[in-house]
Computed example of a mutant assay.
Amino acid sequence: MQEVRCQAADLQGRFEQLAGLQGHFHFAQRKGYSGVGIYTRHEPSDVRVGYGCGEFDPEGRYLELRFDTPTRRLSIISVYFPSGSSGEERQLAKFRFLDNFHPHLMRLKAEREFILCGDINIAHSQADLKNWRSNQKNSGFLPEERAWMTKLLHPTDPTGGLVDVYRHLKPHTTDECYTWWSNRGQAYANNVGWRLDYHLATPALAQLARTEHIYKDQKFSDHAPITVGYELAL
């Protein structure tokens, strides 16, 4: 989960566990802001809250659960990338986050397998948003943001190599791929959406992905949850 917007006291006695799953969280220092979480039925061998960045860790953007055994080093990660839609200052912060976060992912990829589940706040390609022509100068579809994603996903670039798991399973879908809709106008009713939510995985784990689903039966957020089923035993 991303952008949970709560503090530990808000969850106490209510949401530490759900449906037999144990919750782990990274809360923002600022109340009512950001925050990420992961629920799991397996006990992690280690929990990493933040990724060691003095600027962005206080915003509650990164949680990593490690499930290490003698034969496997596996991480499940929840990340909430900054949005730059509120103005130039936050867009510059978003660029700083991208520059800072990329080396972290590359170091992690060199050490272990992982699946990153995140609100990345970037639509990578024209197929990932309805009105791509009119959004080329808007945050979330800027050329610099898309180039960052392209580099991250390049299969042979040593500074890339991650896999967009949804696109691995559904390479050609357009209108059905969206996970976010503006609250303005009739964006949801007209399916004027963006694909901002991703599973990014190391290649070996991406090959274990079997099913994908974007849940739209109920609308309870401006985002729709994305589920990927992996043939993976912990």
Rank of each mutant, 00 (worst) to 15 (best):
R90I: 01
G50M: 06
T40F: 00
L74N: 02
I120N: 01
R73I: 02
G87T: 03
F56C: 00
K109G: 12
F81N: 01
E111C: 12
E55N: 04
L116R: 08
G35W: 02
S78V: 00
L92H: 08
H102Y: 05
G118M: 06
A28V: 10
G32T: 10
E59G: 00
S78I: 00
A110K: 14
C117D: 00
E64A: 11
I76F: 12
P70F: 04
P70L: 03
E59V: 09
R48W: 05
P44Y: 08
D46V: 05
I115E: 00
Y62M: 07
F81C: 01
G37S: 14
G37E: 04
I76H: 08
C53Q: 11
F97P: 04
H26T: 07
F27R: 07
L105K: 08
Q91T: 06
N100Q: 15
H26R: 12
G35H: 03
P103I: 13
I122M: 11
V49D: 03
E111K: 15
P103A: 02
S83E: 07
F101H: 04
G35Y: 04
L98W: 11
D68S: 09
R30K: 15
Q91L: 09
R90G: 00
F67S: 02
E43S: 10
D57M: 04
C117L: 15
S85M: 11
H42L: 08
R107N: 06
Q29K: 15
E43Y: 08
D46L: 12
R61D: 02
R96W: 02
I76V: 14
N121F: 06
C53I: 05
S85A: 15
I120Y: 05
I115T: 02
E113C: 05
D68M: 10
L65H: 03
A28E: 11
E55V: 14
G35S: 12
R41D: 12
K31P: 06
N121V: 03
L92G: 00
